[in-house]
Amino acid sequence: MALFKSGNPALSEKIFDRTISTPHTDVMTVRGTLNKFGILFLLVMATAGLAWKMAYSGVNIVPYMWAAVIGALVLAFITIFRPQWGAYTAPIYAILEGFALGCISAYYNFAFAKIAPNIITQAVGLTFGVVLAMYGLYRFRIIRATERFKSIVITATVGIGIFYLISMVLRLFGVNIPFIHEGSTIGIIFSLVVVGIAALNLILDFDMIEQGAQRQAPKYMEWYGAFGLLVTIVWLYLEILRLLAKLSDRR
Score class of each variant (00 low, 15 high):
residue 75 L to I: 08
residue 155 T to R: 11
residue 102 G to S: 07
residue 184 S to Q: 02
residue 136 G to M: 09
residue 211 Q to A: 07
residue 132 L to Y: 11
residue 159 G to S: 12
residue 199 A to R: 10
residue 227 F to S: 03
residue 55 A to E: 04
residue 108 Y to P: 01
residue 76 A to Q: 11
residue 75 L to G: 07
residue 215 R to F: 15
residue 5 K to G: 09
residue 149 F to M: 06
residue 91 P to V: 14
residue 55 A to G: 09
residue 236 L to V: 11
residue 114 K to P: 00
residue 151 S to G: 11
residue 229 L to T: 12
residue 143 I to P: 01
residue 216 Q to F: 14
residue 96 L to M: 12
residue 166 I to V: 15
residue 193 V to A: 11
residue 251 R to Y: 10
residue 163 F to T: 04
residue 199 A to I: 11
residue 74 V to D: 02
residue 214 Q to W: 14
residue 8 N to P: 02
residue 125 G to L: 04
residue 53 K to A: 15
residue 242 R to Y: 00
residue 239 E to I: 00
residue 130 V to D: 02
residue 118 N to L: 14
residue 209 I to Q: 00
residue 158 V to K: 01
residue 155 T to A: 15
residue 196 G to W: 08
residue 32 G to C: 07
residue 218 P to L: 12
residue 50 L to N: 06
residue 190 F to K: 07
residue 182 E to W: 07
residue 162 I to K: 02
residue 213 A to L: 10
residue 142 I to R: 06
residue 61 I to L: 13
residue 239 E to N: 12
residue 166 I to H: 05
residue 189 I to M: 08
residue 213 A to S: 14
residue 205 D to C: 09
residue 45 M to G: 11
residue 202 L to Q: 05
residue 53 K to C: 11
residue 222 E to M: 15
residue 239 E to V: 00
residue 242 R to M: 05
residue 12 S to L: 03
residue 84 Q to L: 10
residue 64 Y to K: 09
residue 52 W to F: 15
residue 46 A to L: 14
residue 167 S to H: 04
residue 237 Y to C: 06
residue 123 A to S: 09
residue 78 I to S: 03
residue 119 I to W: 01
residue 116 A to T: 01
residue 158 V to R: 01
residue 4 F to D: 05
residue 248 S to V: 01
residue 6 S to L: 06
residue 224 Y to S: 13
residue 102 G to L: 12
residue 58 G to F: 13
residue 160 I to M: 05
residue 168 M to V: 10
residue 37 F to I: 08
residue 118 N to K: 12
residue 71 G to E: 08
residue 56 Y to R: 07
residue 207 D to C: 04
residue 27 V to P: 06
residue 203 I to A: 04
residue 35 N to S: 12
residue 114 K to R: 08
residue 221 M to L: 11
residue 104 I to F: 08
residue 109 N to E: 06
residue 32 G to Y: 05
residue 188 I to S: 08
residue 83 P to Y: 09
residue 28 M to G: 05
residue 26 D to L: 14
residue 134 M to R: 11
residue 122 Q to C: 02
residue 108 Y to E: 00
residue 2 A to D: 09
residue 184 S to P: 01
residue 201 N to E: 04
residue 81 F to Q: 07
residue 147 E to T: 13
residue 51 A to E: 12
residue 86 G to S: 13
residue 124 V to T: 12
residue 107 Y to P: 00
residue 64 Y to W: 13
residue 82 R to E: 02
residue 216 Q to W: 06
residue 67 A to Y: 08
residue 185 T to Y: 14
residue 81 F to T: 13
residue 137 L to S: 10
